[in-house]
Design a binder for these strands. Structure first.
Lengths: 212, 212
DNA sequence: CAAAAATTCAAACGATCGTTTTAATCATAC
DNA sequence: GTATGATTAAAACGATCGTTTGAATTTTTG
């Protein structure tokens, strides 16, 4: 296997540096140097820095969302087959598990997860919208399935509780990178265990009673 | 009342713009123009852009953390007085309620909350550390109180569940700003109601059983 | 009021940014 | 082999960045 082509090398380097330094602080010069390509290659192959971050996000998020969507559909099908409501824990697992599993699948994937975790809070409208438009359909799908799972709850409660789960998940992924401030004597669970911990937590929160 | 002094006008403008555009993309020229002061005023009064963001954060976070710390201490005292374990919902409320209430107290406060919500994910080490060092003692205090509240749970479980609550809270505040993607026909609750919704959610997640 | 200190101001510094240009190099087709 | 198109290369563009300078101005002090 020879070295990858220019476009892929740029995408890999951009993914790494955008995750490590952020979108704005990362210069095209740093990216092209890391990728060992000419400075002009970014504008030649992608057109602009903005188009580059767009491709960096889409390259991984589209397959990941397809997987999550497939998992959600399986939960829905299984519920229909059993003529039961879909268990909320399965709904949450279909979204959360692929995310954390994908993060462990490699160096680039890990950088990417850091990157999209920050995309939600990104102040730059264009960058944030790139991510939002890709996540919106999946979030809608999960919301409708959660609504089927917990029909006794008001829709706005379900909506916010799903947001809480997403917030917990993204915050967790940031903490796994660098924000851990564990008190002395507290061990950190592995990624697999953490997956269960967060799913249990989110499911308990989703299922909790709600008196209007 | 005449106009505020230069330092305060700079802090207000910086708070607003850092929240709206982010730290790196916001230039000192934009800040000083918004504050209607000379460009050199920032370096004269604060020394550097980094020292400015430091003061922007500290100015509001120190009083807010003092309030949250006081609320936590009250929960601890009340539990000791009753010779009972502190209710986890009270622990969470002591942290969450002041945050959302503070956010509603004014335009600057709202911008500030947006700003610190993003500080956790900030890639720039110096900026993130400014925030981390200020939040660390409070987080530790909350952790120890939660540990008293739920002594049957392993410490690492408590730690991560607290992180989940913080993640849910910060994500919620981002959503209140701009990431809301409500499906059609779903009403959004007011800030007061939202405070209860998130506290109930976090408490249910904290209390959920844990089989090792 | 005059001297001294603090603050404001306009201007410029060197550095870095994303992007463009133009020529050189490579691959591919006839 | 030579012409054609795709890619790479080096260099420069104009713009903007944080910071500094030194004089003008305001405020404070004796």
């Amino acid at each position: 296997m020879g070295k990858k082509d220019t476009k892929e090398r740029i995408l890999d380097a951009a993914e790494l540096l955008f995750a490590r330094e952020g979108y704005h602080p990362t210069s095209l010069r740093a990216i092209t140097k890391e990728a060992d390509v000419n400075l002009a290659a970014v504008n030649y192959h992608f057109g602009s820095k903005e188009a580059l971050i767009k491709e960096v996000i889409a390259r991984r998020l589209l397959p990941l969302n397809a997987l999550r969507s497939k998992r959600l559909q399986e939960v829905k099908d299984e519920a229909q087959r059993k003529k039961q409501k879909p268990p909320i824990k399965d709904v949450l697992r279909a979204f959360i598990e692929p995310t954390l599993k994908f993060r462990e699948s490699g160096r680039g994937a890990r950088a990417f997860v850091t990157l999209v975790g920050r995309a939600i809070t990104e102040p730059d409208d264009t960058v944030r919208n790139i991510f939002m438009e890709l996540i919106q359909p999946l979030f809608r799908q999960m919301f409708e399935l959660a609504d089927e799972s917990l029909p006794h709850l008001p829709k706005d409660i379900i909506l916010w509780r799903l947001h809480f789960a997403i917030g917990a998940l993204t915050h967790t992924m940031h903490c796994m990178d660098k924000c851990i401030m564990p008190p002395p004597g507290v061990e950190q669970p592995g990624a697999q265990a953490l997956s269960s911990i967060i799913i249990d937590y989110a499911a308990a929160g989703m299922e909790s009673a709600h008196e209007s």
